Amino acid sequence: MSKTHEIKVTKRELQRKGASRRLRHAGVIPAIVYGGNAEPVAISLDHNATWLAQQNEWFYSSILSLNLDGQITKVLLRDMQRHPHKQLIMHLDFLRVDENQALTASVPLHFLNEDTSPAGKAADVVVTHELKEVTVSCLPKDLPESIDVDLGELKAGDVVYLSNIKLPKGVEIVALAQGKDHDDAIVTAKHGKGEAADEEVAAAE
């Protein structure tokens, strides 16, 4: 189950780009909240506090509680615009979430016990993470901040697929609902190039 993280925001009037530029110079990020049955609301956030928050995984995959003068709106981050050269957030888009309606969100994968697995301990085996996150569907209360993938038994030649992931209750992987052809590999364990070449030579002989 996902935790909620509260962020204080301030309401602002929708204005031209010049106003947004002045906000950024003042250390404030312009943002918008949309979705649900309510009209879009223009808000602003403190840049320094938000910059620190966005360095955490939960900022991108968890339900966020926007606190506007004591009124809480639960949202998901849907878009972040960054400055191309500076450590500066230019704009944020937040989507309102309905507690009773399923949502889709990208959730990071955490790979556990890889170093102690047979593949991880073998010097001639290369373990590749094909995916680092997965798109899931669930009710907001069931949204996980991350999903653990235990690689403790991973051996050379093994492939871990989306269907092998142990999911929290109430959570589904969107791709799997589209059929077996979408059961993508998330981890592969292959012998290094040197040993693979030796095996090809031996097979040819």
Rank of each mutant, 00 (worst) to 15 (best):
M1L: 09
M1V: 10
K3V: 09
K3L: 13
T4A: 10
T4D: 06
V9A: 06
T10K: 15
K11Y: 13
L14P: 11
Q15R: 12
R16S: 13
G18C: 02
A19M: 03
S20P: 04
R22G: 07
R22H: 12
L23P: 01
G27P: 05
G27F: 10
V28H: 07
I29H: 02
V33W: 03
G35L: 00
N37E: 14
A38S: 12
V41Y: 08
A42Q: 07
I43N: 01
S44L: 05
D46L: 06
N48Y: 11
W51I: 10
L52A: 15
L52Q: 14
L52V: 14
Q54K: 14
Q55G: 08
Q55L: 09
W58G: 00
Y60L: 05
S65C: 08
N67D: 13
L68K: 07
G70F: 09
I72P: 00
I72S: 08
T73V: 11
V75Q: 02
V75H: 03
L76K: 03
D79G: 11
Q81V: 10
H83F: 03
Q87V: 07
L88N: 13
M90D: 05
H91K: 03
L92C: 08
D93R: 12
F94Q: 01
F94H: 01
L95P: 00
V97M: 04
V97L: 05
D98T: 06
A102Y: 05
L103C: 02
L103P: 00
P108Q: 05
L109T: 09
H110F: 09
H110P: 02
H110D: 09
F111Y: 15
F111I: 04
D115V: 14
A119W: 00
G120S: 08
G120M: 08
K121A: 08
A122P: 01
V126R: 12
V127P: 01
V127N: 02
S137G: 11
C138H: 03
L139M: 06
P140C: 04
K141I: 10
P144Y: 04
P144W: 05
E145P: 03
E145W: 07
S146G: 05
V149E: 00
V149H: 01
V149W: 00
D150E: 13
G152Q: 11
E153P: 04
L154T: 06
K155H: 15
D158N: 12
Y161C: 04
Y161E: 06
L162Q: 01
N164S: 15
I165A: 05
P168A: 05
P168Q: 06
K169N: 11
G170Y: 09
V171P: 00
E172P: 04
E172A: 14
V174C: 09
V174G: 06
K180Y: 08
K180V: 11
K180W: 07
H182T: 11
D183W: 09
D184E: 14
A185R: 07
A185V: 05
A185E: 10
K190M: 12
H191L: 15
H191D: 03
E195N: 13
E195F: 15
A197M: 12
A197K: 15
A197N: 14
D198P: 01
E199S: 15
V201R: 12
V201C: 03
V201Y: 08
V201N: 09
A202P: 02
A204I: 14
